[in-house]
Amino acid sequence: MSTDLNTDLLNNDLLNTDLPDDDLVNPVEPFLRTDRMPHIWCPGCGIGTTVNCFARALIESKIDLQSLALVSGIGCTGRVAGYVALDSFHTTHGRAIPFATGLKLANPKLNVVVYSGDGDLSAIGGNHLIHAARRNIDLKVICVNNLIYAMTGGQTAPTTPDHATTSTNPYGTFEPSFNLPHLVEAAGAVYVARWTTFHVRQLARAIGEAFQKKGFSFIEVISPCPTLYQRRNKLGDSLDTMKYYKAKSKVKNGAPTSEVGLTISGEIIVGKFVDRERPDYQSMMRAQYVDSLGDRFVEPMEAEVCS
């Protein structure tokens, strides 16, 4: 066969149109606002890959899409909310978690996903991150960690490792970085996992597992930012980065999170680190009210009727 695509395109035989419709649908397509494609993410950005895994996790877990709300903050990953065909909220910088908290508390039937970046969730939103984990609010947090502030042009993030060069640390960063799984475990998360964009099947499975948990679940996805992180640090392009993830990742389920900190080019410990049971915020709240108020307690209205 010809290897020239343009030649192929001229050949009507090759434009196969007699397949059943379902054959022509990418499984991620029903989850996308296809009228907004193509998306704004750079070539080789890993965020789209995580969205594929998210979509496949939704298919696998057979979750009722009508019950699903997705909340993002600001930044590259913050744009996920704008691309998914769900009830989706693009909020303010760092505040995806408290917005999601409001959704979940006011309508406990909702399945609420927070999909945002490392800078959004752990810097400007860091306070909300730890407190939501402490309260064990029933939220599924997907944190795409590209180790940098990407949307604004490659500034140092709380996650920027070692002495990586950034636009605001042009001579190399020197402040220590957050180990996010360790942070959220200490704060109280019931499910903590880390995968990279190389580990697509594991990531999809992890998202599915988080949907089975009641409580604060946190999945960190290490993802390339070829434009602002890899290039500036002479780490190659995103394909090189994916190869690095493949070569240097080590699966250690149950690894102590204190030992999973990231370095600029060293080993990446991935896996499911925490999977434990704690009563979630709403269960605790209800138990407390029932205990204290007895018959006077009235169940919070599910989907408050305003209209």
């Binding site: 991620v28 950005c45 890959t49």
Partner: peptide
């Protein structure tokens, strides 16, 4: 391939 493709 579908899972990896960042551009759907």
């Amino acid at each position: 391939c579908g899972m990896y493709c960042p551009d759907f």
